[in-house]
């Protein structure tokens, strides 16, 4: 059965079981490999994308539930907030193994788009669902603050 979805501004039609989680459609069908598999039960956030701008876990989101909503993956990020986050991530050397960082970046960009100057409590609540087994958390927090300062100008 063919299903259409809009990813990074483009329409795609895929022919897979409609219950397939969006994560595996992005990866196995569209080869958008920035979005990662970590747990499959929405506990780690490695699979985070933006759905109509809102950070969403794709490992438990069936393709059939996406509907006409706009999917943005890390490959499709194109905003001041994204630029600031990725710059801060690089300047502070946040990534270690790096596997979770697409998800971390997507959550951080989502946070800054909603809350341009987040305090630590806002960072806690936006980022606590994103697991980093390397525990790069000190720098993640620092980079979000730094990105917020960059955006202030």
């Amino acid at each position: 059965m063919s299903i259409s979805i809009k990813v990074n501004g483009r329409e795609h039609t895929v022919d897979v079981d409609p219950s397939t989680p969006l994560l595996w459609v992005l990866r196995d069908e569209l080869k958008l490999t920035g979005t990662k598999y970590g747990c499959g039960i929405a506990q780690c956030g490695a699979c985070t994308v933006h759905l109509d701008g809102k950070p969403t876990r794709t490992c438990v989101l069936p393709l059939q539930s996406v509907g006409g909503r706009e999917v943005t993956t890390i490959e499709g990020l194109d905003s001041q907030e994204a630029e600031a986050v990725q710059r801060a991530w690089t300047e502070l050397d946040v990534p270690q193994c790096g596997y979770c960082q697409s998800g971390q970046v997507m959550s951080a960009v989502g946070l800054l788009q909603k809350t341009p100057k987040p305090d630590d409590a806002a960072i806690d609540s936006a980022m606590n669902g994103n697991v980093c087994r390397c525990a790069s958390y000190v720098r993640i927090r620092g980079a979000i603050h730094q990105a917020a300062r960059m955006l202030e100008g």
Partner: peptide, 27 residues
């Protein structure tokens, strides 16, 4: 000295084994 892999690991471009897609590959 900055990490040589910091940028590609902040943009989703870094390649891991999970990201290997070879022609005609099965999972």
């Amino acid at each position: 000295v900055g990490r040589v892999d910091a940028r590609e690991k902040s943009t989703g471009e870094a390649r891991f084994t999970l990201d290997v897609y070879l022609p005609d590959m099965l999972t």
